[in-house]
Design a protein around this nucleic acid. Structure first.
Length: 887
RNA sequence: GCCGGAGUGGCGGAACUGGCAGACGCGCCGGACUCAAAAUCCGGUACGGGCAACCGUGUGUGGGUUCGAGUCCCACCUCCGGCACCA
């Protein structure tokens, strides 16, 4: 039997995988605390909502964390890599409404299913620390946290205009409404409602939240920028205007106190509390009509940019504190009650919005800043918003405007009419939800309208069993009289429980802390445990949480820090945002004699006609909807662009069947090799084939040499001194690969780490063509490769490790170390350039001196030929790289 | 409008602090094995020209710095993401 035929027996066989998973679990290799004395590393992927079946898109996220975990385990760290479930939320409730299953049963069923998917995928976690947010042992502490915030004055109840999702029938936080005014979950246009709700005072932490972003060096710039945008810090001043003929004062916020002399009117938001008081009797009807109209107008309308600016005068005036000028007060809906003070001073000459409003309403425009060296603004038909020199501003004339602004603010402050002020766009976090499947808010309402917290010893406030989950604009919990009736812990009187539940983002804003001590039933966690594990060294998740979850988690962590419960005030030292896995959706078209017909679902989705279309027509229509018309063996189909894999799009490749057919290792290599992990990637069957070939080639190369490799390995590693001349390149490649894989893995460059392993494999395969029998060098390559492979193809690595006679697990075998000496290959190739273009190459010893290189380059026939009779003006020598001859 | 990021072969993508552009893989082309196919193996593959060795061009566009630019500087274009009547 020839070698070649023999080798063909060996192929990568996915059925070996379950055995190794069992082995890892039994050995407890991924249990935190296994190396109690070692340096710790906390690696965490964002926990998911348990939606049941996992697809390979989820897989990518978990494989990244798994690869990192395995790498650090091999490096000898004590690694915490836990998992849990963000298990409260609307899908469970909606399923209950639809099918009658209890949300609890539905959720735990999904958790079981998801967990088994993860197990099949071979992703290893420390399951001893699993958390489930809908478990009373967990939400008890979510409620405890609510009480903590309440005690610190950070949870309060207020009546405010809030976002109402008409589809999910609940209120939403600002972060949960996108810029086009739609709910993050349901996609419905939100409405405004005046409601009394619970808020968390995140604005009290606005300054720290924005300032501390600078300390987060391990975070992507992009995410930090998004948080900065969201918090919207803006420096300026408050200025007080006295209302003429009254004791009232209107406080405005401005970022441009330098333009105060140019303020020709004031504008209040229609909801401003002084509106009712200040309006002149003869204006009453017009003003109230306008207020009513503004109230009705949807958020979208109100924010659309090119709308004509509307407003009405109140009929009152006030006094400009710097020049005593009497200026009229207007209301307009371009001024928002929720930002600053809900009132502005309008400076039409220097603010485009005020300019438009002034033009539309015939109000005066007064220039107070001009470009240096000019006497008027350059553009008479627009506001001049740039910096310049003060004019028409009394004592400040001639000054540079920024300096003048500071001086004006200071002078106002001395007179008690203004002060520097920082404003934030960020609003307080609305946490009440009128839904069933969430943590009940642990507060009690007294008859007199005051509230009292549930006693800590009475936690958890357990979700009651109810009959009807249908949202009716009021929490379903209210239907349980048994739940609602409670006793006042202070007076013993009868009180009513709050019937709202908490936003699920509250549940997820602290789960990473609970992992430190997940089974503690006496306190939220012990101080030893939290000190051992926090902060998270590496957090991994989707960029869609850049603001929502990540901002809330930072806030809660800071509160807990202030309370002395966590050792650091930032939860995540480094953040990695992975890209999504996408897949095109192909929908077959029906071929009719008259042309092609799309199925009804597609007609609806793309707005196609119900009648058949000709091929060119169909192509054009599809193209307009970013679809392609494709044809295969006479059948036509519409193909979408790449769409992120999801349950709703129905384009997920389920993990279970894939892993059964190809194995977890193939899935890993496919996902990690295809592109840098931060990029979105398109899933393709060709990629799967490439991954499978790679693993098969490894098996084929080493397949039947296990015993020989084990023997040679024990005899010791190959050192440069023992190597034959033709072995040096492979030896060097081996050490270069160790270095590359090590550095790339730490930098999340898994694609290039795997590419380096492929290069090593290619070289090893070529080497074998000349050395059919295993050698000391090939044994070293095999042994090293199996360990370098372990983070990315752990099952195969473990199998190889056993074949090569390794004891125990490959994850306890240590990470390979490269030798700098081996990297210094003695013969190197030097490029020879003439005028910057490569014209020749020299093979020289590594330590060839500069002068030698220069001489040899000039001696090159090619160079002499190209230089001809010109004189050599300059020769640049970069040792180890190239020589450039300038002629 | 403001902020952040990205433009490299047919495709995904490589390229350390300025130093041989296109690693690795996919796809495609050719060959070996096979009755044949699949699988596997070997070779080729930026573009244009030439039988060829070779020559020319080439990293979104236009300039610049430099012996040398995908990489640095200036001005633009396009795409993606966030914020946006936020005073």
């Amino acid at each position: 039997m020839s070698q070649g035929v023999h080798r063909e027996r060996f192929r990568f066989d996915p059925t070996i995988e379950p055995r190794w998973r069992k082995f890892w679990a039994e050995q407890g290799i991924f249990r935190a605390g296994r190396r109690a004395g070692a340096e710790r590393r906390y690696i965490l992927e964002m926990f998911p909502y348990p939606s049941g079946d996992l697809h390979v898109g989820h897989g990518k996220n978990y494989f990244i964390g798994d690869a990192l975990t395995r790498y650090y385990v091999m490096r000898g760290y004590d690694v915490l890599h836990p998992f849990g479930w963000d298990a409260f939320g609307l899908p469970a409730e909606n399923a209950a409404i639809k099918t009658g299953t209890h949300p609890r049963a539905w959720t735990y069923g999904n958790i079981r299913e998801s967990k088994s998917s993860l197990d099949i995928a071979g992703v290893m976690y420390d399951w001893d620390r699993e958390v489930t947010t809908c478990d009373p042992d967990y939400y008890r502490w979510t409620q405890w946290l609510f009480l903590l915030l309440y005690r610190r004055g950070l949870a309060y109840r207020a009546t405010a205009t809030v976002n109402w999702d008409p589809v999910d029938q609940t209120v939403l936080a600002n972060e949960q409404v996108d810029s086009s005014g739609r709910s993050w979950r349901s996609g419905a246009l939100v409405e405004k409602r005046e409601l009394s709700q619970w808020f968390f005072r995140i604005t009290a932490y606005a300054e720290r939240l924005v300032r501390d972003l600078d300390r987060l060096e391990g975070w992507p710039e992009k995410v930090k920028a998004m948080q900065r945008n969201w918090i919207g810090r803006s420096e300026g001043a408050e200025v007080e205007f006295a209302v003429s003929g009254s004791d009232d004062r209107i406080t405005v916020f401005t970022t441009r106190p330098d333009t105060l002399f140019g303020a020709t009117f004031l504008v209040l938001a229609p909801e401003h509390p002084l509106v009712q008081k200040l309006l002149a009797p003869e204006k009453r009807a017009a003003v109230l009509a306008y207020v009513e109209q503004a109230r009705r107008r949807s958020e979208i309308d109100r924010q659309s940019l090119d709308r004509e600016k509307t407003g009405v005068a109140l009929g009152a005036t006030c006094v400009n504190p710097v020049n005593g000028a009497e200026v009229p007060i207007w209301i307009a809906d371009y001024v928002l009650m929720g930002y600053g003070t809900g009132a502005i001073m309008a400076v039409p000459a220097h603010d485009q919005r005020d300019f438009e409003f002034a033009r539309a309403n015939g109000l005066p425009i007064r220039t107070v800043i001009v470009p240096r060296g000019e006497s008027a603004p350059p553009e008479p038909e627009a506001a001049f918003a740039e910096d310049g020199v003060m004019v028409g501003s009394g004592a400040y004339d001639g000054q540079e405007n920024r300096a003048a602004g500071k001086a004006i603010t200071q002078s106002l402050e001395e007179r008690g009419l203004g002060r520097p002020r920082v404003t934030y766009r960020l609003r307080d976090w609305l946490v009440s939800r009128q839904r069933y499947w969430g943590a009940p808010i642990p507060m009690l309402h007294r008859e007199d309208g005051t509230v009292v917290p549930v006693r800590e010893t009475d936690l958890p406030v357990v979700l009651p069993e109810i009959e009807d989950y249908l949202p009716r604009g009021k929490s379903p919990l209210a239907s349980s009289e048994e739940f609602v009736r409670a006793v006042d812990p202070e007076t013993g009187a009868e009180v009513r429980r709050d019937t709202d539940t908490m936003d699920t983002f509250v549940d997820s804003s602290w789960y990473f802390l609970r992992y430190a001590d997940a089974r503690n039933d006496r306190m939220i966690w012990s101080s030893d445990a939290i000190r051992r594990w926090m902060p998270v060294d590496q957090y991994i998740g989707g960029v869609e949480h850049a603001i929502l979850h990540l901002l809330y988690s930072r806030f809660i962590t800071k509160v807990l820090y202030d309370e002395g419960l966590v050792p650091e005030d930032e939860p995540f030292r480094a953040l990695f945002t992975q890209g999504m896995v996408q897949r095109r959706v192909t929908t077959p078209l029906e071929t009719r004699p008259e042309g092609l017909l799309a199925p009804e679902s597609l007609q609806k989705a793309l707005g196609l006609p119900a009648d058949p279309l000709s091929v060119p027509e169909m192509r054009a229509r599809l193209r307009a909807e970013s679809h392609a018309l494709v044809e295969a063996n006479g059948t036509w189909a519409a193909q979408s662009g790449p769409i992120t894999m999801s349950k709703s799009a129905g384009n997920g490749v389920p993990m279970g069947p894939f892993v059964r057919e190809h194995g977890s290792d193939v899935a890993r290599i496919t996902l990690l090799f295809a592109a840098p992990p931060e990029n979105d990637m398109e899933w393709s069957d060709e990629g799967v084939g490439g991954a499978e070939r790679f693993l098969n080639r490894i098996v084929t190369l080493f397949g039947d040499d296990g015993a020989a490799i084990a023997r040679l390995r024990e005899a010791g590693a190959a050192t440069s001194a023992d190597l034959a001349e033709d072995e040096r390149p492979l030896h060097r490649r081996l050490h270069a690969t160790i270095k590359k894989v090590t550095e790339d893995t730490e930098a999340f460059a898994f694609n290039t780490a795997i590419a380096a392993l492929m290069e090593l494999l290619n070289d090893a395969q070529r080497y074998r063509a000349n050395h059919p029998e295993p050698t000391a060098l090939s044994a070293e390559v095999a042994w090293t490769m199996c360990r370098l492979l372990a983070p990315f193809a752990p099952h195969l690595a473990e199998e190889l490790h056993a074949w090569f006679g390794g004891a125990g697990s490959v994850f306890d075998a240590g990470w390979p170390v490269w030798s700098e000496q081996a990297l210094l290959e003695e013969a190197i190739e030097i490029a020879v350039q003439v005028n910057g273009k490569v014209r020749d190459r020299l093979v020289v010893p590594r330590d060839t001196a500069e002068a030698d290189l220069r001489e040899r380059a000039l001696a090159s026939e090619k160079v002499r030929e190209l230089v001809g009779d010109r004189s050599v003006r300059k020769v640049i020598v970069v040792p180890g790289r190239l020589v450039n001859v300038v002629a």
